[in-house]
Write a protein that binds this DNA or RNA. Structure first.
Lengths: 132, 132
DNA sequence: CAGCATCCACGTTGATACTG
DNA sequence: CAGTATCAACGTGGATGCTG
């Protein structure tokens, strides 16, 4: 972890010169983003939209087990963060297309690094988990 | 996102040749790891242990607002995944030292990439969130 | 010092029914 | 088609008290 990612200098210092006020890391932006991306569906949606734009029902069929409610919530969350763009086409019946924003595209890069780490080490993780 | 991170080929294909069975991505290893690392405290603990080993109470003072329960749970979880090593010293009173395993050290790398992305783009995210 | 056990509040997810 | 609304189940996290 680089030293730059944290807003709390003492968080990465040695040996804890003084306790860190709660408010500063309670909303640590890194954890904050990880919590959004770490939910049940966001990564899946981002990956799909990283390939091409999708319509709502198309996404739901693609993921298949996601409820309508959770797909909506996931998309709204990603949209609120500026990672996903929602475009409504005034057709009849209406169709809505979702795509990654430029910001969302850039997130694919570090997400890939993490994904590659998982692929490279998941055997180790699985093995360790089983032994516990 | 690289194509290799997912165990579900059609997950990243176009345009969804066929629906993907639930079981295959329900336990997508990437989301799986993100969910662990995306919890409230894991990243903080990993970052701290990335600097040097810590004893239990030392960690708790360092994070300060974490409950004993959650620190225990977090450490046990990371230990179960093979990311953290727990070593008990048979002193009186007993002391326990936590440190990153070699595997845990390697996780710091992609975690840094993601952290740097957050630092670089958090202004955009904050701005977008406020407008929603 | 380094925990575990218990109880409780809350957020997240899912199932189902309904709508512009 | 693309949602919203409502209710129920579950998991996560916090507070407190006790222990080897």
């Amino acid at each position: 972890m680089s030293a730059t990612h944290t807003p709390v200098p003492s968080m990465v210092s040695t040996p804890l010169p003084h306790p860190v006020p709660a408010e500063e890391y309670e909303q640590c932006p890194v954890t904050d983003v990880l919590r959004r991306v770490g939910d049940k569906w966001s990564v899946l949606v981002i990956v799909l939209l990283g390939k091409r734009p999708y319509r709502f029902n198309e996404l739901q069929r693609g993921i298949e087990t996601i409820s309508q409610r959770m797909l909506t919530r996931t998309l709204r969350g990603l949209e609120a963060d500026g990672l996903v763009h929602r475009e409504v086409f005034p057709t009849v019946p209406p169709s809505v297309e979702y795509s990654l924003t430029p910001l969302g595209e850039t997130l694919l890069v570090p997400l890939s690094a993490l994904a590659d780490w998982v692929v490279e080490h998941r055997a180790e993780i699985s093995a360790t988990r089983l032994s516990h």
